[in-house]
């Protein structure tokens, strides 16, 4: 596969942004600064970025409760996201949604979602719209290994296949749904892609901790979907580095599990190792990006902290009727 330097630098920047965004949130949440429940995406960066680097603003994604990575990969404003997570008035959703409900429809990010399994049917609808527009655009539903067990996900896959629309089901298997293992909850021997295949779709599998593998596999998948107008699915084998939510004691983990994952399955390390043996990028370029990202996240947190809080007198804005 042919990569451009610019493309690779952009992908690395997005992954590094997701990682640092989440690591910083982990610290700030521990300080008690951030309201509500937060589900961190760290560990899964290569999945969101490997998928979204193929998309532009007219392609659409629907996301999950663990949505920060999808938002950043799709191009949401990082500072506005941070303000949203802090519950500030000029957050991306005016402080009304918070971590679990970030959306920016103007760039094809149709929403993170607090209801597990709600997204897949919405991607089918977005794909109907994409088909109607006739510009070869696609709609992607991100779902976890937990969400794949929800009836809505099955209905969406079958319907997408029946009506033949360019919907793409991306299953990020991070091996846990809350505190339950995929070994227990996914009856098809932990194999999610085979379910999509059973609905008559072409399916792919990739290493969701490896940007190159995810990106290249998605390229094939997208060729197929854009060429045929039909739905497809991909299962990404990935990992989550933090708890289900911040504060989760993670008693379900094996001893030393997270240390091992951070050693062997870290998307950023894998990217760097790849570039160290490749001629495309200079590692110093990646170091420089890391520093720029740190400055961005610092500024995002500082600005979010300082930002104006929400005004209770505006609580009834954006509903159709008040009583």
């Amino acid at each position: 596969m042919q990569y451009s330097q610019d493309g690779l630098l952009r992908a690395y920047r997005r992954m590094a942004t997701i990682r640092q965004f989440e690591e910083r949130l982990h610290e700030e949440i521990a300080k008690g600064e951030i309201p509500g429940f937060t589900h961190l995406y760290a560990g899964q960066e290569a999945a969101a970025v490997g998928v979204c680097e193929h998309l532009d603003n007219d392609d659409m994604i629907v996301s999950t409760h663990r949505g920060h990575g999808h938002c950043i990969a799709k191009g949401c404003d990082v500072k506005a996201m941070m303000k949203e997570i802090y519950g500030r008035r000029d957050g991306l959703c005016k402080g009304r949604g918070g971590s679990m409900h970030i959306a920016d429809t103007s760039i094809g990010m149709l929403g993170a979602n607090g209801i597990v399994g709600a997204g897949a049917p919405q991607a089918v609808g977005a794909a109907i719209a994409a088909r109607a527009e006739g510009k070869g655009k696609v709609a992607i539903a991100f779902s976890g290994d937990g969400a794949c067990n929800q009836g809505t996900t099955f209905e969406a896959m079958n319907m997408a296949a029946v009506i033949s629309v360019p919907a793409i089901f991306v299953f990020e298997n991070n091996h846990y749904s809350e505190h339950t293992g995929d070994k227990y909850a996914v009856a098809t021997d932990r194999d999610i892609a085979s379910r999509a295949k059973a609905f008559g779709m072409e399916v792919w599998r990739a290493n969701g901790c490896d940007f190159y593998d995810t990106f290249e596999t998605m390229a094939e998948l997208l060729d197929h979907v854009r060429g045929s107008g039909k739905p497809a699915a991909i299962e990404l084998d990935t990992e989550r580095f933090y708890g289900h939510f911040e504060g989760d004691p993670q008693r379900y983990r094996a001893k030393g599990e997270v240390d091992r994952l951070r050693e062997e399955r870290d998307a950023l390390k894998i990217f760097r190792a790849h570039e160290a043996t490749d001629e495309m990028l200079d590692l110093a370029q990646l170091d420089a990006i890391d520093e720029e990202v740190t400055a961005l996240i610092d500024a995002a947190v500082d600005e979010a902290r300082e930002a104006e809080k929400c005004d209770p007198s505006q609580i009834e804005e954006d509903v159709y009727a008040a009583y």
Binding site: H179, T180, G181
Partner: peptide, 20 residues
Amino acid sequence: GEDVAGGAGTAGGQEAIGGI
């Protein structure tokens, strides 16, 4: 229900949670 015991199919084992 979901995770009413918790920990099924994990290294930590069943009852890792005891209901959220």
